[in-house]
């Protein structure tokens, strides 16, 4: 059983969360649809990394907020969690929340 530490509610079962997707994708700033490549990338292209992956989960059975999670796709270890706008930075000590 995975435990995800919701920044608002505290540690909870992963069963309370809904997986949303890759958290590294940012919506293109321009609404210009002629800028095809950026939009194609944003909508369709996803990496499938072996190792650390930044992803969004929604705490749907709790506060209903989106949570940014760094998960190891090999071991399923949850390494860090924070709010979606936070940068989860990797340093010597591991991941830290930047606020």
């Amino acid at each position: 059983m995975l435990i995800i530490n919701c920044p608002l509610c505290g540690p909870r079962d992963h069963a309370e969360f809904t997986y949303i997707g890759d958290a590294t994708k940012n919506r293109p700033k321009s609404d210009d649809i002629s800028n095809d490549d950026a939009w194609y990338d944003y909508v369709y292209l996803r990496d499938n990394p072996k190792g650390l992956h930044e992803e969004l989960w929604q705490h749907s059975f709790g506060c209903r907020c989106f949570v940014k999670v760094v998960r190891n796709t090999v071991t399923h270890q949850i390494i860090a969690t924070g709010m979606p706008k936070e940068d989860l930075i990797l340093d010597e000590k591991g991941f830290e929340r930047s606020v």
């Binding site: 059983m1 435990i3 509610c9 505290g10 540690p11 909870r12 079962d13 069963a15 309370e16 059975f61 709790g62 506060c63």
Partner: peptide, 20 residues
């Protein structure tokens, strides 16, 4: 019923959780 930490130290009087 739930994996929340129900121990008195973390879930005492006037605490609430919304959970499964």
């Amino acid at each position: 019923g739930s994996g929340v930490d129900w121990h008195l130290n973390s879930f005492g009087t006037d605490h609430c959780v919304h959970t499964k």
